[in-house]
Amino acid sequence: MDDLCHAALRADDRSYFSLLKKEVHARALAAGFSERRTGEVDIVVAELLSNLAKHAEGGQLLVKSIHDGDRPGIELIALDQGPGMTDVGRMMADGMSTKNTLGHGLGSMKRLSDLLQVYSQKDWGTLTLARLFNEKPPTHPMPPVEIRALVLPKPGETECGDSFFCRQDEDFIRLFLGDGLGHGPEAALAVQAAGAAFLECPSNDPVAIIRHVHAEVRKTRGLVGTAALFDRRTKLWQLCGVGNIATRLLSGGVSKNYMSYNGIIGHNLPRTLNAHAVPGEKGQHLVLCSDGIRSRWDLLRHPTLLRYDGSLLAAALYKDFGRMTDDMSVLCCKLNS
């Protein structure tokens, strides 16, 4: 089972690097990695931390256990506020260095990772995404839908009141992003109860799903949340939200917001709820954000970011617009066909 949240590890002090390496090493072993593959994870982590220290004077390393079928994996995202790169492709080549080193870092990470993507802008910083699996996953055709999420607890908290849930079959994709009121253990209980209710609800109507979740979480402190359903046959989105979950569809260079209803799931719902029905199209991104991400986010500075894996899109929003005073979550769903 994938971790519900990423762990955010500070990487702005070299004296902590050995502890960070041990943390990721332990996570890889706990996920079921072999000793050999864990050693390769160690090399990738060392290179990521080395780049943060040499080129950006520190940053963050986000870590999460993932799976591809029954293959355990680990996702690493390095973020920094450094000077950035103007030509990432050139810097990926072996022997390229701006710090009088051998210049093998990015190349070795690419060879050891099952996926490596680097997004960078001059004077903005760099995001590096690496995914490694214990066994090399089979080569899949591009999936028709790509779903990625970044969920982080409020700094200093061990439990997260934000979470996302997904249920798919051959006809529908069902998504739910919830944010328990406040933060900490009680908020986490509320959002996990909502997730359980969402996953057991048989309806393919987001309004009915919201009402079902509302009825099931009355004994919790409550939450805000958005349910999104995509009908694979009709290529139609249905969206319904209550509370301050930002919902946005990005398509063809156009960004459109969809308003949620006022209320608190589990305490007070409007008598009338209706779903937005929106046609889906190839290349479209649905992005849901909790209020831990400032609501006025935009991607004007990042016109090419939508070409990358959705985890980098989520990480960029966290990097630029994360409040750091609350739990934070971003859910991205891209239609590839």
Rank of each mutant, 00 (worst) to 15 (best):
A197C: 12
G243L: 12
N134V: 00
T158A: 10
F198D: 10
L223D: 05
F133R: 00
G161T: 01
A188G: 05
C160L: 11
N244D: 15
L239M: 15
L199A: 09
R148I: 01
G180K: 00
T234R: 13
P202V: 14
A149S: 09
A197L: 08
V224C: 13
G182C: 05
P155S: 12
I210G: 06
P141M: 12
D169R: 13
D205Y: 05
H212G: 04
P185S: 08
A196W: 02
E146K: 05
T226I: 06
V217M: 01
H140L: 10
R218I: 00
G161M: 14
A190M: 14
I147N: 00
R167W: 02
C160E: 02
L175Y: 07
I147W: 04
V213C: 08
N244T: 10
E200D: 13
G178A: 15
D162M: 04
R211W: 08
P202C: 11
C240Q: 06
A196F: 05
R174E: 10
A246G: 08
C160P: 03
L152Q: 11
F172N: 07
P143V: 05
V242Q: 08
L129P: 05
G156T: 06
P141E: 15
R218S: 07
L223R: 02
L150M: 10
Q168S: 09
R131N: 03
L223Q: 10
A130N: 00
R221A: 08
F133W: 03
G241L: 07
E170S: 12
L129Q: 04
G195D: 14
C160N: 01
F164H: 12
L129T: 02
R211H: 10
H212I: 04
L250Y: 09
P143F: 11
C166H: 15
F230W: 06
E186Y: 02
C166V: 14
V213T: 06
P144N: 13
L150Y: 10
C201S: 09
V213N: 00
T234H: 07
V207H: 07
F165E: 06
R174K: 15
T158I: 09
L177Q: 10
L175K: 03
W237Y: 12
W237F: 13
L181A: 08
A194Q: 14
R248F: 11
G243W: 08
F164D: 14
C240S: 11
F133V: 00
T139N: 01
E146Q: 12
I210F: 06
R131Q: 10
E135V: 04
K154W: 09
D169L: 09
L239R: 03
R174T: 03
A208G: 06
D162Q: 04
G182V: 07
D205T: 05
T139K: 04
L236K: 11
G184F: 10
K235V: 03
S203M: 14
A208V: 11
D231C: 06
R248E: 14
G243T: 05
C166W: 07
A188L: 03
L189A: 12
F230H: 05
P141R: 13
P138W: 08
K235L: 10
C201K: 00
V242C: 14
L229K: 02
G182T: 07
